[in-house]
Amino acid sequence: MNIDRIIGRFLLGKQSQDELKTLEQWKTDAQENLKELQGIQQLWRDSQGLQDYQDFNVDSALAKLESTLSNDKNVHHTGSKVKSLLSLKWISGIAASFLILFLGYQYMVTQQTTVVGSNRTVHLLADGSSIEVADGSDLILADSNEKVFKLKGSAYFEIEKQENTQIEILTDYGEIIVVGTAFAVQSTDDYTTVSVSEGKVNFNIANGSFPLTAGMTASFDGQSMTVHTLSSVNFKSQVTGKLIYDSVPLYQVVNDLNRHFGNKILLSEEESNFGCKVSSVFSDLVLADILQELSLTIGLKFHKEENKYVIDSVSC
């Protein structure tokens, strides 16, 4: 029985009597099957309206808009020059007041924790380096020179290389020392993972230092350190929510999912047995849904043991 094909024919009303019987049986086999078929029929109807739907270039449109607004701003500034001069006296008076407030604020800032980025914001450093902070994460400034940060959650760092300057990121399970590179850090209550896209960083833990180069991902849970070499395509996934696989062997996909979700998948057979390749994009999906998708595309069979998923077999 090929239920995929029967569904494909059923949607056009071209199913035979035998196929209809099979489909009815499949629907009654499990409540979930009935819900799945209803969901598919709804999708089929919803997608009728997609004809002529286009993919407009958002990035170039945004660049065009920014250019328009920037020109507009320049024109506006020239026009308001005279007016600005007239209000100079007022401004100098107000500025003095603000200076007092600012000094007071600076004093307060040094006395408390400063969160410089959270929930998908990009924090820019003076040297052009950037830090993209993932949803539900906090990047906290740990020194006034913006050289030391504490991270709770996940962030992607693109640090400009500068002589005699290094950035430090502090996590519960170690610190990451950076000179100039691009890398991701995931800092949770249970572990810290560092994944390097470009350049080199040192992952320092209590009993040693681990130099990591491009393509390496290392995870430390306070007891053991695991290091893998992977394609770095998805190293920004904590920030973007996207995992992209283009003809990637399953065992590498599993390692990458373990990097992203924090070692939640166990391989119960030898890695070499899994010769299947995966081509798909997963956006903001939970691990159970990704494994469910893989069961449809490559016949992956798995079960759950406590809080981990165990892969039993594949049939591609």
Partner: peptide
């Protein structure tokens, strides 16, 4: 045509999973 029917059914099952999360 058999392959098309098969892929439409499979594609919609996958799409349903993706949309359920989205």
């Amino acid at each position: 045509v058999k392959t098309v029917e098969n892929q439409i059914g499979r594609g919609l099952r996958l799409l349903r999973l993706k949309m359920a999360t989205a």
